[in-house]
Design a binder for these strands. Sequence first.
DNA 1: TCCATAACGAAACTACGAGTAGCGTAAATA
DNA 2: TATTTACGCTACTCGTAGTTTCGTTATGGA
Lengths: 190, 190
Amino acid sequence: MSIGRPRDAARDRAILSATLELLAEGGYPALRVDDVARRAGVAKTTIYRRWPSKGEMVLDAIAAQLGDRSVEESGDPLEDLRRLLEVTYERLAETVAGRALPALSAELMADRALAEEYRRRFVHPLRDRARTLIRRAVDQGRLRGDVDPELLMDAIVGPALYRPIVLGVPAPAASASAIFDLVISGAGHT
Amino acid sequence: MSIGRPRDAARDRAILSATLELLAEGGYPALRVDDVARRAGVAKTTIYRRWPSKGEMVLDAIAAQLGDRSVEESGDPLEDLRRLLEVTYERLAETVAGRALPALSAELMADRALAEEYRRRFVHPLRDRARTLIRRAVDQGRLRGDVDPELLMDAIVGPALYRPIVLGVPAPAASASAIFDLVISGAGHT
DNA sequence: TCCATAACGAAACTACGAGTAGCGTAAATA
DNA sequence: TATTTACGCTACTCGTAGTTTCGTTATGGA
């Protein structure tokens, strides 16, 4: 056992909850560390004792709400891919954490290390999963063999972040399925 | 004629050039107004006499380099759409201004007015043009009638900004055509 | 029970960059 | 020559992230 007064887990929870609340109220740009401290009933030093920066704290707060992205598999890779997409769009559109993610990109472009951690925790797991499903679908002849998995993922996941960041409008959870169908079936006549 | 000493157009050019240079060197997050002033050989007050904020200045610098997006029409709406997409990807990937845009988009999340101007100047003209071409292609029976133009645009343009912002990697100019083909033909077997 | 150790709160502090103010000087028109 | 506006310079204000210092509190071990 380590010596000295132990960290209070209740304070961790209070800080992360306050972060999510303030994120819901004003979004990432308006989030100030002093406000988080006040809302959590904690000193600012207590926050900086736990996280090296505001960005890392927010990353943890988001992770705490999103939890793991596990989706049960049906065995049909295309249906699993559709389901994965639906769940992703849904979480991005309908949770505080999800709605905060696009704006967090601002901070990320300015901090390479933070960007890397963001990708490692939120982006890559999702893309790895999707890539596996796409490869399986190709193997089973459900997708054309000349399809580039990366390109396919960009086309179907891209709008979920492109719309809020660039257009300033949400990507509705319901659009996931429509985008999936569009890209799988193609927009042109055969 | 207005009275008093006139603004020096050479200083405008010097400021915009310096902005582009520094954008090329360190990207948007590292761009400091004091540095622009020093590089341009101008006082900071001269910059703020012309632009109300750093963001507006950068928007003008980018516009100065990108110029207008006019692309000649061939009459074939699908080929024109492909060409528009290629030009867009190319400019985003291969100009200082284009490479700065993604990081700027992120910054825009914090400033609604600036975001609106950004969309008005750079995003909407492109999307309006694409929408027209898509509608024309539908009318000519080259695209399915049940295709949602907005969804189609999101899928083909999205990756150009999604990749740099979220993945931290460029969207190669060459990928424009591949994405276009994928979304038009569809990834699945018919 | 005492002691070493580390967490905590409070307040004052530093660092940094955007944007502003005041003033003396330069360039234009009438 | 008088007026008006641009310009440079210097020194500011302001907001926020992150730090420092120190007195206080909780815990586990001797």
